[in-house]
């Protein structure tokens, strides 16, 4: 494991902790897209199907369990917790899951490294992760009131993707046979989706003003 990969995982972990902090302590999920959270739960469920059959390290297994557990518990809180669910922006969060999931599934069936059940679902999870943030970005654009924690959550998620790209570049030059076009292109698309958000995040940070997106 290199430093970029570790930094990526830690930013990812931090993003999840920020979101859980908001939900647990403020008992609010205002501005958080349930659609995006449900898509992440599906992403982790399909990617970590090998959790019992393929062991890499205790670190990997532990992180997989954390990402699975946190994504499903966030979904549970937003849907069923008696206080948290009342703060959910139901009417604004109208993105259709199928609109993203179906093309990703078709693409995974067409473009993959191996045509096996696990490999196709693993590839599907890569494609879906790339676009899973879209409902969240649409919700931000609609509500336009972004509290600090929600802003930090999205910033950290974007940071995680940025570090993973550095990790791939590092591994490409240090490891033989490390060539994974599908992972790279999906990851690059995912990172680019954050570019616009990053631009406004830095602008607000530079001017020391509250983050606000243009209409």
């Amino acid at each position: 494991m290199n430093i970029f990969r570790l930094a990526g995982d830690m930013t990812h972990l931090a993003s999840v902790l920020v979101l859980l902090l908001k939900i647990h302590t403020i008992k609010s999920c205002a501005g958080v897209s349930l659609k995006t959270q449900e898509l992440y739960a599906i992403v982790f469920a399909t990617r970590y199907l090998d959790i019992l059959t393929s062991f890499v390290s205790i670190y990997n297994t532990l992180m997989k369990l954390i990402f699975l557990g946190s994504s499903f518990s966030i979904v549970w809180y937003m849907k069923y917790h008696k206080t948290v669910r009342r703060t959910y922006d139901r009417d604004q969060d109208t993105f259709r899951h199928w609109f993203l999931m179906l093309p990703c599934l078709l693409l995974a069936l067409l473009i993959h490294e191996k045509f096996t059940f696990f490999e196709v679902l693993w590839t599907f999870s890569l494609y879906l992760e790339a676009v899973a943030i879209l409902p969240q970005l649409v919700l931000l654009q609609r509500t336009r009131n972004i509290d600090n924690l929600t802003g930090q959550y999205i910033f950290l998620l974007g940071g995680y993707r940025g570090f993973y790209i550095l990790n791939w570049i590092y591994r490409y030059f240090t490891e033989p046979h490390y060539v994974h076009w599908i992972t790279w292109i999906a990851g690059l698309v995912q990172t680019l989706l954050y570019a616009d958000f990053f631009y406004y995040y830095f602008l607000s940070w530079k001017n020391n003003k509250k983050l606000q997106l243009p209409a």
């Binding site: 990969r5 990812h12 090998d50 393929s54 890499v56 992180m63 990402f67 046979h177 060539v179």
Partner: peptide
């Protein structure tokens, strides 16, 4: 996973 595999990432 084999050396050079992407399956050891999260």
């Amino acid at each position: 996973p084999k050396n050079g595999s992407a399956k050891d990432e999260l």
